[in-house]
Design a protein around this nucleic acid. Structure first.
Lengths: 149, 149
DNA sequence: CTCGTTGCAAATCATTTGCAATGGA
DNA sequence: TCCATTGCAAATGATTTGCAACGAG
């Protein structure tokens, strides 16, 4: 169980980090971060935007996007999206995982044995009544050619 | 090593499946499928489109998209994209994996131990000179509420 | 007072769609 | 012939950007 005070404490830490970086802590940012950190789901920018619309009728969705980007940069949010803006298609339909370069967008296949061992999971999934269709395991990072930046 | 004849054989199988379903095997589809199946990378629709532009100057990119969708439906291509069209953000930055419902788009967290055990992988990655930044492990399927359709 | 941030609208960009013309089966 | 598919252009939808006004430090 996650106490509300936890996300409150986390929020305060983030605010402090922002100030120490010369970035500003505005009422909009606080509202967005508070809403986001208290959530147990995986919201879209739009979801947060609608949540806050009653309280902040003039808030722009671009502000939500930019605040979320700040959180991702600080490591306080994980973005669930492709590293690439466009869909990529894989002719190899066997179970394997991908190394995705954040710089040049090259995608390299890795046999599952070299990447992670999948548990049967069937028990966990059926317990939850979840019917799996396909998996996607991606490791984002920088390839040999692109180094670290 | 993958021989060209392999993807040729695969192509012929797909063409046969299409015909048996009353779907048509057009020159555009053959060209797109041949190009796609022979690839060792993970192309975008645009990449295939530019490849074929010289040979088929009037081919529309919407045709590439629709043919790729056919291949995905046949299980001959894996689409690397979010199940959701919009980005989702996760306030939980610890290592875990996601059950993503293809119908209602609900995303559920699963502790790594229940989903797959990650190998250290450090060796494999360093061998390849890959610097990992973050991982994403998603299982797409249908949640208990949405059943199988 | 400064300069990072906001709100708004317009711009982008990938992907989809509507529809008449085309051409596989 | 018939109807699935194509090409084209317009529509859509998520996200980004330009910029003047604003306001946190």
């Amino acid at each position: 169980m996650i106490a509300a005070s936890d996300s409150q404490r986390r929020l305060e830490g983030i605010m402090q980090t922002l100030r120490s970086r010369g970035q500003r802590v505005t009422p909009q940012r606080v509202a967005i971060m508070r809403n986001f950190l208290a959530r147990l789901d995986h919201p879209s920018a739009e979801a947060i935007y609608s949540d806050l619309h009653a309280e902040y009728p003039t808030m722009a969705i671009s502000t939500v996007y930019s605040t979320l980007r700040v959180l991702v940069e600080l490591g306080e949010a994980a973005e669930m999206s492709l590293a690439t803006s466009e869909a990529r298609f894989d002719p190899n339909t066997s179970d394997h995982c991908h190394l995705v370069c954040l710089n040049c967008r090259t995608i390299v296949d890795l046999p599952l044995t070299e990447c992670a061992r999948a548990r049967p999971m069937t028990s966990t999934l059926s317990e939850r009544g979840f019917t799996p269709v396909r998996r996607l395991h991606q490791v984002f990072g920088y390839c040999a050619d692109c180094g670290e930046a």
